[in-house]
Design a protein around this nucleic acid. Sequence first.
DNA 1: TTCCAGGTACCCC
DNA 2: GGGGTACATGGA
Length: 286
Amino acid sequence: MDLAKTYDSGQVFSWKIVDGNYIAPIGTALYELRQMEEGLCEAKLISGPSQEEDFIRYFDLRRDYGEIYNHIVGRHPELTGAVHRGRGIRLLKQDSTEMLLTFIYSQNNHIPRIRKSMEGLKELYGPEIGTYKGHRFYALPGDEVLKGLTEENFIALGAGYRAPYLVSAIANIGDLRAGYPDTDVDSAALVARLQEIHGIGPKVAACIALFGYGCWDVFPIDTWVRKALKHYYGSEAEKSGFIKQKVGEFGPYSSLVQQLMFYHMREGVKDERRPKNQQSRGRAKG
DNA sequence: TTCCAGGTACCCC
DNA sequence: GGGGTACATGGA
């Protein structure tokens, strides 16, 4: 696992970097994550209950990523560069309600602002769960507190025109909990249900299903992934039906392929803006 | 200052 | 189904 790549892959907005370590709230527990030699990490419980099973599930530790990377490269050699650059990224299984709100915030928005808005929401309304080197950490407010929030509250948190979307999403939390356990769900049914919520379209629904419910067969398409598809498959990617066919080929690893594409394209652009001697390894081929 | 962001709703054809 | 536009906000 590569903490820097995982942090930087647009899926988690609750970690903080303090003195080179990643401080991660997981449920009501707070962990210090330290990157050791390549691929190895050390985690230390800072505060809160030690719940090993939650931790394992959050990082998806029982899955053999090496085997999956080999499978992807073997079947889709054009993705070799993306796999090389993204090796170490893990798809995190986070809290479904947090992902619901986070990815509504994410639409037409910058990653630093998404992070800031979610932090503000937790600081203002959530319970404090621990302190690390002077930095306080908060959990997401409970359902009842969230239900009490108004559009004005969210506008004050910088949500802009998304404020009514957030309020309507919160009104659906009870129904979502009742209908969809946050694991082993039918992703197609879940995505369809999420899209019934005003302000949630196909991309946001797919991200919530992936990061909040652990659905690996979804394929969220944002600006970066669209660029990647065009990069790999040219004008073919524009044709209707092509992406559906491609996702069919990626099958149960669709989400990881998507995440590798996202990371690869973003880092590629960052590289172009960086001096050559600071560029990351594993550049795109082709 | 201007541009733009892990999109979506809404309108038109 | 495809194509266009408005949308709040603040970081870069």
